[in-house]
């Protein structure tokens, strides 16, 4: 009985591995075939040298970094304040942070276009800088569920109240309590939320495309519609970026665990 169930487990893992690894192998193999006379990294060279790639990837990286900064500045003080002063608001705040998982991104951006069009009370889609701001806010919205949950879990693992009272009794001001006491203690939680946000934002298509901004997602779509080998190279690059983000989360989570035990 035991050995048959172990056999079944191996079969399940083998089929799963096949399904998940085959597309990666196929994509990689296809991306090497740009030169007719054998495998080469030609497609990667072409992609990396494309000014369009550099510009859009740079734009999305900048957007991701801004999203992470604004998201952290919004989420950490809120989660801290809820924990310390307004615990009865916790269910409401949790509910709001989960809404972006319920309302599809395409619906949210449709609402922006209706609410903030160039003839509205707050014409955020009127000029490019304002639309960049709107795009960044849309990304903060998308990141809310991940950021809030990881920061909230981080705050629950430390004794927020005692740390705050200790800092207060030593005469620390509110900004320095947050920056010098709370932030360092939830650093790994913030970082894991940040890397997840980066992975979500870097290739995002719907928001950027409908707000008409030159991000990496719409660029990918354009290349996919017009080229043969470059899309595969781009898919491999995107996969590696996602993998790197997730890998860094693991690294920071592992480093955080012993520290939390001694605290």
């Amino acid at each position: 009985m035991k050995s048959t169930s172990r056999l079944g487990a191996w079969v399940a893992i083998a089929i799963g591995t096949l399904y998940f690894v085959l597309p990666l192998i196929a994509t990689f193999e296809f991306s090497l075939k740009m030169n007719r006379d054998g495998y080469s990294f030609e497609a990667y060279k072409v992609v990396l040298a494309d000014p369009g790639f550099q510009a859009t990837f740079g734009y999305s990286t900048l957007m991701a970094v801004l999203t992470i900064i604004v998201g952290i500045l919004l989420v950490v003080p809120t989660a801290y304040w809820i924990q310390l002063k307004l615990p009865r608001l916790r269910p409401l705040v949790e509910f709001i942070t989960l809404l972006p998982l319920v309302i599809p991104a395409i619906v949210i951006v449709f609402g922006y276009l209706k609410l903030y069009n160039s003839s509205s009370w707050l014409p955020l889609t009127g000029n490019e800088r304002a639309t960049d701001l709107l795009l960044m806010c849309s990304y903060v919205t998308l990141a809310l569920p991940y950021l809030y949950r990881s920061v909230d879990a981080g705050l629950r693992a430390i004794d927020v109240r005692t740390l705050t009272e200790a800092a207060e009794s030593l005469g620390a001001s509110w900004p320095s309590i947050l920056l010098q006491v709370i932030f360092p203690n939830v650093k790994s939680a913030i970082l894991s939320g940040a890397f997840l946000t980066f992975a979500v934002v870097i290739g995002e298509f719907t928001m950027a495309s409908l707000l008409g901004r030159p991000a990496f997602g719409p660029y990918l779509q354009l290349i996919g519609a017009n080229r043969a080998y470059e899309p595969s190279a781009l898919a491999i690059i995107a996969f590696m970026v996602t993998w790197a983000s997730m890998g860094l989360i693991q690294v920071f989570a592992r480093n955080a665990r012993p520290a939390r035990k001694t605290a």
Binding site: P23, I25, T27, G224, S232, A238, T242, W243, G247
Partner: peptide, 28 residues
Amino acid sequence: TFSGVASNFAGIPLSFAFLSTLGRMGLV
């Protein structure tokens, strides 16, 4: 770890990967 990566590997790159696998000229 792989599930963390793959659940976030959606969107346009994923469609490229499946075109390279099961498209008309795909590997499989």
